[in-house]
Design a protein around this nucleic acid. Structure first.
Length: 877
DNA sequence: TGGCTGGAATCAATG
DNA sequence: TACATTGATTCCAGC
């Protein structure tokens, strides 16, 4: 771990750069409500004490109650009744009653080669889908991972197969088996050994067993197409069907894309799609049955798989390393072995790098670690392993509930479940977030390392407000565009190994999504440096074969972080945050300029602003942008390059005159660095301090900045939105519901926000910043989709006494809170010139794709804009 | 030697 | 239909 990675203190640079998305991405979280939650106190939900979006339908007092026994969802059943005691929000929990077929695949693919943790270990004992990564070098072993330079067919096969691991877990979410086997083998019940509340504490409540999401996904697979929350797992059923595709099925057609001079796969090539897995997410055809789910029993390997005398579940060890590495460890113990001892994991965790147990030792212990596998052929058919629970219930349940994000340990929320980043004093904070680009690697490639921060370190997460016991933070790859945060279909988290990795982590699978679990230890201040998190790219063709064309420009991900904090009564408080979007493609990542920081964040015309970043050259342009009521406009700043020794460069920018000479007061705009077409940095906020109309600090400045036209920008404004003061006097405002679809805020859901009458474009609210209060993020609005989930702060009273001026947040477009618009918000007319008449005036008339293109990349790159209220607003008049 | 990283070749899809 | 561009995937080489 580099010094940069030490989570010892705040990154001053990020603090200084409020608009920078790279590092400080945790949203501002609320102060502790009166009903502070702690492990010792338990969730003492108080409807009086909590003003958590009381009007919002998401947390309706008439919460939803879900019965895990079946589709008995009752919309009137209070989940978090303000009048009643706290109740745990229960996700649809479907318990598997028998181990499913092919569990050996998953087990072989993900079962750690290191000792599973004991009951006292921070991460809890290994589940059937988990694997521990030691700090030692034994993760990849050539003996177990033959050369990746296998034949094309075998590579494709094996690659697919390896990817199968991420889905074969479908068959082995076996709480019942785990418990039974645990009892049989003297293990602590897996159900009592949660991932989230690992280290068994006397106070520790029963900890989560995990299987709800699995059940739901299975339900989706069988009863709902397409799945509303697509995850790779959900494809298993589809995959299996695809093994015998109808004539018109996607599997029967050539792949839409991938070919290669030698290694690229042709689906229409020599490999019969009927005999190979059409997806990396399913076992090869011989392992699949025409049934919606793979048939039980140990399937013989394909002919390319040598008959192996390896124990049950270890056949996969023959998979080339290149195709195996992303799937974690490869050992899979046969049933009937003795469990691993907890000291094994401790030894692993405590061992300095290079002193971890040897491979054989690890294998021996891993082989002894899984006593709960039933013999092949004795499993309950997968179709009988779940109950049909509409996934919408999950949403409704959460939205309708009015309390904290508490869940039953046996029913943890799926990964696409909306969660806040904080509740009460407990906050999952992304102290340093990843930089917005990271080239993902394919299964056929070697790892491309861990995701890094803009400064070269690694992301750091911290759980604030809780240090009772060691926990884990779960890391997964989520979509960058969608609301709520949900697993990305094309990308999976990849466990990075190597000398530079200092963080022990465990790989598991939840809801078909690969998840890394990293300890959060009290002795480390509940902070973890995530230097083991890489990004694996799944082939689009494989995914599309299952789900159809999902679009090819989906090369961005967000890193999702989730933690489960044990509470009293056996519940767990689930918190989640996410990083900024990360561009994972090579080309864009290489050429995209990146703004590391800049200063100042506000200024007047003619002043200088320094922009430091990477991929910045003398050809880079600095474009200021502002969205007028009828569209965005841009103008360019004069910039000169000041090269530095490092890879970073500094652009000294002379703040150009605001394009609208009539603008008065402080005007919130954005700027970005452009290297050309589609080579632009993310947008950053900047506040113009226009003192008076037609008044510019520099007499040399032209009266108005010439507008520039960037790709996709078709507007020349006719109005300038001038912000003179925060207009919302009632304190914090948390969400502006997007006007696209019915997506709700992942945390808050809908809120009493109504559309703004035109021509107002923005809803401005006032918040009171903390030291780490920026940037803000909102996933609910496509315009503001960047960043981690908006926190779920309870409404606070009067603003705290502080010398820090309030920050007005640009929280949305076209909406504002259910309060009268301030008189101070107004629009001034300007000379309107539209260069592209075919573009409609209203943004609502722009297609979502266009909005994504225009806004996502160009304007609201941060998902947040801040308006720093002038200390003396009158002086701006 | 293996992993990480950057670069580029190749091909398909798209405009 | 030909061509250019873009995107996806794989391969290669250097460190």
């Amino acid at each position: 771990m580099s010094g940069d990675d030490q989570p010892s203190g705040p990154d001053l640079r990020t603090l200084w750069s409020p608009g920078s998305p790279q590092d400080l991405v945790s949203p501002p979280c609320p102060p502790a409500p009166p009903h502070l939650l702690s492990a010792s106190q338990g969730p003492q939900y108080s409807p009086q004490g909590s003003q958590y979006s009381p009007q919002g339908p998401q947390y309706s007092p008439q919460g939803s109650q879900y019965s895990p026994q079946g589709p008995q969802y009752s919309p009137l059943g209070p989940q978090y009744s303000p009048l009643g005691p706290p109740r745990t929000l229960a996700c649809p929990s479907i318990h598997i009653t028998a181990i499913a077929p092919f569990s050996h695949l998953e087990l072989s693919g993900s079962r750690g080669m290191e000792d599973p943790p004991g009951p006292e270990d921070p991460l809890g004992p290994l589940g059937p889908e988990q694997t521990w990564l030691s700090l030692g070098p034994c993760y990849r072993d050539s003996a177990l991972s033959p050369s990746p330079c296998s034949s094309l067919s075998s590579r494709s096969w094996l690659s697919d197969l390896s990817s199968c691991e991420s889905f074969s877990h479908v068959y082995d979410d076996v709480e019942g088996e785990l418990e039974e086997a645990a009892a049989r083998c003297g293990l602590a019940s897996p159900r009592a050994s949660p991932r989230a509340s690992p280290r068994a504490s006397p106070r520790a409540s029963p900890t989560p067993g995990w299987g709800a999401g699995f059940g739901v996904e299975l339900w989706q697979q069988q009863y709902q197409q397409p799945s509303p929350g697509p995850s790779p797992r959900s494809s298993v059923t589809e995959e299996t069907w695809l093994t015998q595709p109808p004539p018109s099925s996607p599997a029967s057609r050539p792949a839409s894309r991938p070919t290669s001079p030698c290694g690229k796969r042709r689906h229409s090539g020599g490999v019969d799609v009927r005999t190979r897995s059409p997806s990396p997410l399913c076992p090869p055809a011989p392992l699949c049955s025409p049934a919606p789910l793979c048939s039980p029993g140990p399937a013989p390997p394909e002919q390319s798989w040598p008959a192996s005398p390896l124990p049950y579940g270890l056949q996969e060890l023959n998979v080339p390393s290149k195709t195996r590495r992303t799937s974690g460890s490869q050992a899979d113990p046969p049933p009937g072995q003795t469990p691993c001892q907890e000291e094994d994991l401790d030894r692993v965790l405590d061992s300095p790098p290079g002193q971890t147990p040897g491979l054989e030792d690890v294998l021996d212990r891993v082989l002894a670690a899984l006593p709960f596998l039933d013999p092949p052929g004795t499993q309950t058919p997968p179709s009988e392993l779940f109950l049909p629970v509409p996934p919408s219930i999950r949403w409704t349940n959460q939205r309708a509930s009015g309390g904290p994000p508490l869940f039953s340990p046996s029913s943890p929320p799926p990964l696409d479940w909306p969660l806040p980043c904080s509740w009460g004093p407990v906050e999952l904070q992304l102290v340093r977030g990843p930089r917005p680009f990271h080239r993902a690697h394919y299964e056929t490639e070697g790892s491309r390392g861990a995701v890094r921060t803009a400064s070269g370190g690694h992301p750091v997460v911290k759980l604030q407000g809780y240090s009772e016991q060691a926990l884990v933070v779960q890391v997964f790859m989520a979509t960058a565009e969608e609301t709520p945060l949900r697993p990305h279909p094309f990308y999976q988290v990849h466990r990075v190994t190597g000398k530079s990795v200092t963080t022990a982590c465990r790989e598991t699978t939840l809801d078909g999504t690969r998840v890394l679990e990293v300890p959060l230890l009290p002795e480390h201040d509940m902070t973890a440096s995530l230097d083991c998190v890489g990004i694996l790219k799944l082939r689009n063709a494989d995914i599309e074969l299952r789900k159809g064309d999902l679009g090819r420009r989906n090369t961005r991900v967000r890193v999702g972080y989730r933690v489960h904090v044990p509470q009293l009564h056996g519940n767990v408080l689930c918190l989640q945050t996410a990083s900024v979007p990360i561009e994972c493609s090579q080309r864009l990542a290489l050429e995209l300029p990146q703004v590391v920081d800049f200063s100042p964040a506000s200024g007047s015309v003619g002043e200088e602003m320094s922009i430091r970043g990477t991929n910045i050259s003398s050809h880079s342009r600095v474009i200021f942008a502002h969205r007028e009521p009828d569209g965005p406009c841009q103008w360019e700043a004069e910039a000169s390059l000041v090269p530095e020794r490092s890879s970073e460069s500094v652009l000294v920018v002379r703040i150009p005159p605001y394009h609208n000479t009539q603008a008065r007061g402080a005007v919130l705009v954005h700027f970005y660095v452009s290297n050309g077409k589609k080579r632009r940095s993310q947008s950053h906020s900047f506040t113009y301090l226009n003192s008076a109309p037609h008044h510019f600090l520099s007499p040399e400045d032209p009266p108005a900045a010439p507008l520039v036209k960037q790709e996709g920008w078709d507007y020349i404004p006719n109005n300038a939105l001038v912000l003179q003061e925060p207009f919302h006097p009632h304190g914090p405002f948390y969400e502006a519901q997007g006007d696209y679809g019915s997506s709700l805020h992942p945390t808050l859901g809908s809120s009493p926000i109504r559309p703004l009458p035109p021509p107002f474009s923005f809803a401005m609210t006032t918040a009171y910043p903390t030291a780490a209060a920026l940037p803000f993020a909102n996933q609910s609005d496509p315009l503001l989709r960047y960043g981690p989930p908006v926190p779920a702060p309870p409404l606070r009273g009067p603003p705290p006494s502080t010398t820090v001026p309030p920050v007005t947040r640009l929280v949305g477009r076209g909406y504002w809170e259910d309060s009268p618009p301030p008189h101070s918000l107004f629009c001034q007319g300007g000379g309107a010139v539209r260069v592209k008449q075919e573009v409609e005036e209203s943004l609502q008339e722009i297609t979502l794709d266009e909005v994504n293109e225009l806004i996502d990349r160009d304007f609201f790159g941060l998902g947040e804009a801040t308006y720093q209220k002038p200390r003396d607003a009158s002086g701006l008049q």
